[in-house]
């Protein structure tokens, strides 16, 4: 397990990205470039996006998550979003945010299992 700057951790052939705190445009841009370079460098085939640190989610954050997922997909890796909290799930549904084609799992462990399944497909 090697830790990369910006909360990106490599586990086997997968990357784990944690989103937490207040996200702003500048941070998102930096995070996206980091993800791109990490995927390139490590040849990761899968990525877990852990959002359990986010307690408040609005449509801005929802868009960012969707954007990162499509970015990673374009780079040829599967993604699973894990750790959506109950209150966040309700907010997302109430906001009408539809995570089209985004795979979700309860926690990193289940997400990892799901990721292995997706990769073998």
């Amino acid at each position: 397990m090697t830790e990369s700057p910006g909360g990106i951790i490599k586990i086997g052939s997968n990357l784990l990205v944690r989103l937490d705190g207040d996200l702003d445009d500048e941070m998102v841009n930096r995070l996206e470039s980091k993800i791109v370079s990490e995927v390139e460098k490590t040849h990761a085939q899968g990525m877990l996006i852990d959002v359990s640190g986010l307690t408040l989610v609005d449509s801005f954050v929802a868009r960012i998550i969707a954007r990162i997922v499509s970015l990673v997909r374009l780079l040829g890796a599967e993604t699973v979003v894990v750790g959506i909290q109950p209150a966040v799930a309700i907010t997302l549904v109430e906001l009408g945010v539809r995570f089209h084609n985004i795979t979700t799992a309860l926690n990193a462990e289940q997400g990892m299992e799901l990721l292995e399944g997706l990769k073998s497909q």
């Binding site: 959506i84 799930a89 549904v93 995570f99 979700t104 309860l106 997400g111």
Partner: peptide, 12 residues
Amino acid sequence: LKTIQAARLMGA
């Protein structure tokens, strides 16, 4: 549907 979607986001 809303309940089902929220459960889906939690991975169920």
